[in-house]
Simulated scan of single mutants.
Amino acid sequence: MKIRKRHLPPLNAIRAFEAAARHLHLGKAAEELSVTHGAVSKQIGNLEDHLGFPLFERAGNRLVLTERGRKLLAASNTALDQLGYAIARLDGAAVEGELRLSVPPAFGANWLIPRLAQFRKQAPALRLQLLASDRPEDALDKDVDLAVRFGKPVWRDCTVRLLAHVRYFPVCSPSLLNEPPGLATLGDLAFHTLLLDDPAGENWKRWLDHAGLRDAEAPNTIYFEDFAHILAAAREGLGLCLGDMITTGADLAAGRLVRPFEQSVEGLAAYFLIEPSVTSPAARLFADWLQAEMVSFVRNIH
């Protein structure tokens, strides 16, 4: 069904609905909009009449969104944020306020921070808070505006954008190439330590299998819970780790790490950007910038 713009409900009705849906309380919505309780109720009633279906269910004094109401709330948030941002830009206003971004430590240190100065030019008045976490369960924490996570898309009631798939390959300090026993052949891996980012070493097993070393004897291993620690250990020559161009590209370019072998394997997980159901213009600006930066980065490494 195609709805023409002139057949859309009035903006005041959408604003009344969005406020009531966010608070799940007509009185709080009325206070926010500086109108009466009855005015909010009437706007929502007119909107439901216009659409032809209910947006709320009444449970005593509480409001509960219907399934269609939840969908309209998500669409309304996006539309109002976009409109507010567009008007601010037309008026020459800067994006201000605070943006709390949660990212994995290695992603932040090795990929994001070197690019942050570019974003700061777009929003110099914005106060950024960069929080370090790679736990899937706190990606939608109430104190977080946006989150980047490496894993599988398990989050619900939010917007999840795919940022990038990755391919794994071994990386190590140049010293491991230059000192005995060296790394001239794949068989030399048996004399080195493998640095693990999962306790069972499943990622290494997948790479070894891909490289034709399924039956190779397992060398010494060290497990690290934090991938940033794995990279630090690899730079110090403690062993080899599996890296990707997002987290190890800067080290490879600077010569701090090298690729002893060219074989790579597709990762089972990917980088995702998680946006809560309610986002600010600043969060949407950053999310769009981050996605564009990643698209450009991935294009340039292929």
Rank of each mutant, 00 (worst) to 15 (best):
D145L: 06
A94V: 00
R284T: 13
G52R: 01
L73V: 03
A125V: 07
N220G: 10
D141I: 08
E217P: 05
T248S: 15
F169V: 10
H165W: 12
R4Y: 03
N46Y: 01
H165K: 13
A74L: 05
R284H: 11
G69I: 02
L47W: 12
V171I: 15
A211Q: 03
A216Y: 00
G151F: 07
L194H: 01
F53N: 01
P170R: 01
L131E: 12
L285C: 08
A19W: 08
R115N: 09
I301H: 06
E266T: 15
I113Q: 13
Q122P: 01
T185L: 07
K5R: 15
A184K: 13
L231W: 06
G60N: 03
D197Y: 06
T78V: 06
A75D: 11
L213H: 02
V298F: 05
F297W: 12
V258T: 09
A234M: 11
E48F: 10
K205Y: 00
A93N: 12
C241V: 13
P136H: 12
L90A: 12
D145H: 13
T78S: 10
S173C: 14
N110A: 13
C158G: 08
T159S: 11
E48N: 06
Q129K: 12
R156I: 12
P170T: 13
F150R: 06
R235F: 05
A228I: 05
S173M: 05
Q118E: 14
P181R: 00
A21K: 02
P114T: 01
R149D: 03
H210S: 14
E202Q: 14
F150N: 03
R58H: 04
G97T: 02
A88E: 07
T248M: 07
L80V: 11
A75P: 04
L65T: 07
K42F: 09
A13Q: 15
D188V: 02
T193S: 05
K205D: 13
A233D: 03
A86H: 09
L146C: 03
A20L: 13
V40R: 05
K42G: 00
M1Y: 05
A218I: 01
A232P: 00
L55D: 07
L47F: 10
A218E: 09
D49F: 09
H50C: 12
S280K: 10
E31P: 00
R89Q: 15
A123Q: 07
L65C: 03
Q122Y: 09
W289D: 08
P114S: 04
D138P: 00
E137G: 02
L252Y: 07
R259K: 15
V171Q: 06
L65A: 07
F169H: 10
L47T: 11
L163G: 04
T247L: 08
S280I: 07
G212A: 10
C158M: 10
T193F: 01
S76T: 14
R206F: 01
R62K: 15
A184H: 07
V64H: 08
R58L: 04
L55P: 10
L213F: 05
Y168L: 15
L240V: 10
L11S: 11
R22C: 09
S76V: 08
L128N: 06
